[in-house]
Design a protein around this nucleic acid. Structure first.
Lengths: 327, 327
DNA sequence: GCGCAAAATGTTAGCGCTATCATTTATGGG
DNA sequence: CCCATAAATGATAGCGCTAACATTTTGCGC
């Protein structure tokens, strides 16, 4: 930077200002400096800048996985908004493990991220403590809680599952099974299971443990799980899967076995992944504002990073049941 | 850090050493310091550390997208290896746009990443210049080139497509269409198209432009594209899709329309995405060492970051044709 | 207990930038 | 043309850490 300054015949602080606050520099000077920067091939050192300014212009986002494209839209939404405001988004994946999440949070805090976005509301006590002490904006997304660390932006996974179960009942299905995720450390899938059970209770249908299967989220497991479910409870007339991945795997397994969907067994999913509408039969599911969560998270962070008190600490973005052919 | 040092009754450099090179500190002192760290809730400032040490213990990885789970395994492979060696992986997505890639490269260089991993071998001239001048290890992955910026680790997309086309011919198919990606800025899909054409030439089959459709990689486009292809060239007996996403979309469309696969039309894909083996019919495809690419990239980077000259600058990890039911 | 090498710890300077305040230069009204 | 004010630029210090070297302590053979 000193080289650039000399070449442009100004002091280094003017170079710094040309980069950070060009409106404070006379256009003529600015052009000189910009020319010198190009000539030197100067690449600003943001590590030094972050240290001096005590801010990194960096926001960390932690999602459980990127193997499943579920969170990709949300990350895109966050990125689109924040990059437009000069922030850089760093992505980490926790593999649905709160210990891994904790170590990511530490890593990002050590690198002085200006804000942090987590997926879900289940975190280790250490994670929560670290974030409360960090004094930076924190968003928990994809689920709601009355007592967020700082902000919660998402939708009620409980209500979504409850409504879908009630919807299945309204279509005449009574023996409704549940294909759930592994609930440990996954509050979204846990709330979805709770929603399913709550709906059954409202309907006066007894919950039966062997109508429930819990399995990791991947396509083959969806197939395995529905086969297991129907062999345990052959009289089921519908299955609600806590994730489209499982629902799709289940439909494909039914196709392979020649079981007609929905006449033998109705299948509903959740998340509205793009593949669902391509299957035969097309998948009934719950649409979630995946990209919207991202943009709203971004907007709130920008507000807070500008020092404004955020308008709302808890934002419910809702969901929508999409009835297609599989129910 | 000064607080920690005082509390532990040592100098700050000892605290630093306890964190960086604990083997240089007496166990007793180490325990004191660790206790003091815990007591203070001290979080090391790696921004300052990076500035002082002139290294960030950070590796940047740029992939085209995370919406398609294709690259997720590779990223996981890189991450698994590098985290084990104390490096942190930062992920960026370029959306198949070399200008976006360029700005990501700048952003990562400004943050002084210790190494950089790019997907593919097509980059803007500025990107290449920046990276050559940066003096850090650079890997281009998922494709090969005789003249990499620094290292290339992947497989020959050309050969993979050529072999698959020849394979289709060996099964008796002669009128083979091609479902390609958008070749602009995507060297992998471009090489795959070239491989398809080279195979046709070897077979003495004339390439026909209306047996080729190029489309963005998503499931619905696979369906649209195969319908378009068969309406333009109804006599096709096979289609080779440059990506499983398209092949899967195509098979689902055939299922919807009641077109039997492979008896009416055979369909082959490439990438071996997990969904392919769940479809009816199961998808014939090319298996690619997705995770393996990641680990090999990681290994080579570690070597280089330790200052060793890398064993090889170009690594061909190969591929494998997986014949299933769709051909 | 002495001397010496090795191990452990400390001192100092400086990484490259920006915040803060100081200074210089332009602007414009009387 | 002067002075008050604003705009533009500069000097200086310091962000929190580690590299490099300096010093002290320990261990050990004799």
């Amino acid at each position: 930077m000193v080289d650039v300054a000399q070449l442009a015949g100004v002091s280094s602080i003017t170079v710094s200002r040309t980069l950070l606050t060009p409106e404070l520099v006379t256009p003529a000077t600015r052009r000189m400096v910009e020319k010198a920067i190009k000539q030197c091939g100067y690449i600003p050192n943001r590590v030094a800048g972050s240290l001096a300014a005590n801010r990194s212009r960096t926001v960390a986002v932690i999602v459980p996985t990127i193997s499943n494209s579920l969170f990709a839209d949300t990350v895109q939404g966050i990125t689109d908004l924040l990059e437009a405001h000069g922030y850089h988004v760093f992505l980490g994946t926790s593999n649905y493990d709160i210990k891994e999440e904790e170590s990511l949070v530490s890593a990002f805090l050590e690198r002085r991220a200006d804000a942090m976005v987590l997926t879900g509301i289940s975190h280790s006590p250490t994670t929560k403590k670290l974030l409360r002490n960090a004094g930076i904006p924190v968003v928990e997304m994809w689920n709601l809680t009355p007592r967020p660390i700082d902000m919660a932006i998402g939708f009620s996974n409980f209500e979504a599952a409850r409504k879908m179960t009630l919807f299945l009942a309204s279509r005449g299905y009574r023996k409704i099974g549940f294909l759930g995720g592994v609930t440990e450390n996954n509050d979204r899938t846990r709330d979805r299971e709770r929603g399913y059970l709550a709906a059954l209770a409202e309907l006066g249908i007894a919950a039966v443990e062997n109508r429930i299967v819990r399995t990791p989220f991947d396509f083959p497991m969806g197939g395995t799980a529905i086969a297991a479910l129907l062999s345990k409870s052959p009289s089921l007339d519908a299955v609600f899967a806590a994730s489209d991945v499982l629902a799709i795997g289940a439909i494909l397994e039914c196709n392979r076995r020649g079981w007609p969907v929905p006449s033998k067994i109705a299948i509903a999913g959740m998340d509205d992944s793009p593949l669902g509408s391509q299957l035969s039969p097309k998948l009934t599911t719950v649409r979630i504002p995946r990209y919207g969560i991202g943009t709203v998270v971004g907007e709130h962070l920008i507000e807070r990073l500008r020092g404004q008190a955020s308008s709302k600490r808890i934002v419910d973005l809702g969901f929508e049941i999409v009835e297609r052919e599989s129910t």
